[in-house]
Nucleic acid binder design. Structure first.
Length: 137
DNA sequence: GCCAACGTTGGC
DNA sequence: GCCAACGTTGGC
């Protein structure tokens, strides 16, 4: 299994919205590196769901429920989408501030490439984020 | 195929 | 609201 992180501005699409919807078509990605990550996703892969701009924290874990297919919002056959479903809501969102102070987590791809909207996560990083997110503060 | 200009993202 | 980072575009 592989691990990923997607970013979303909560004013555009939030974790709470994902929980209400039960699933989401992750469309609108218009960056080649991010698209390639979408295409590498397998059903069952875990995806950290990060709030950018407001909140700036990993909110929980989603699951890839459908592998990459033609982005329905794209006419040019260039871009791809996947489907995500919510799995676990962290009881303690893992703040970017905290991630940046950790020697392991501060090396995460999404920290180093802050504009990449879909990034890869190692299993170590994933486990530690989950540990922090599931611990009661 | 290079690179300057431009637009967008996202943290602060 | 500012600005740094960086991906994309387009002229040459």
């Amino acid at each position: 299994m592989n691990y990923w992180l997607v970013k979303s501005e909560p004013s555009v699409y939030s974790w709470t919205q994902l929980e209400e919807d039960g699933n989401v078509v992750w469309d609108g990605v218009r960056n080649f590196s991010a698209r390639n990550h979408l295409r590498a996703m397998k059903k069952g892969d875990r995806v950290l769901f990060y709030h950018s701009n407001e909140g700036m924290a990993v909110m929980g874990v989603a699951i890839v429920s459908s592998e990459a297919y033609q982005d329905p919002t794209d006419d040019s056959s260039t871009w791809s989408s996947v489907d995500l479903i919510p799995e676990t809501r962290f009881n303690t969102p893992v703040l970017l501030k905290m991630i940046k102070t950790d020697s392991l987590l501060s090396q995460m791809q999404f920290v180093k490439q802050s504009r990449l909207s879909v990034s890869a996560v190692t299993s170590k990083e994933f486990d530690l984020i989950c540990e922090l997110g599931n611990s009661s503060s």
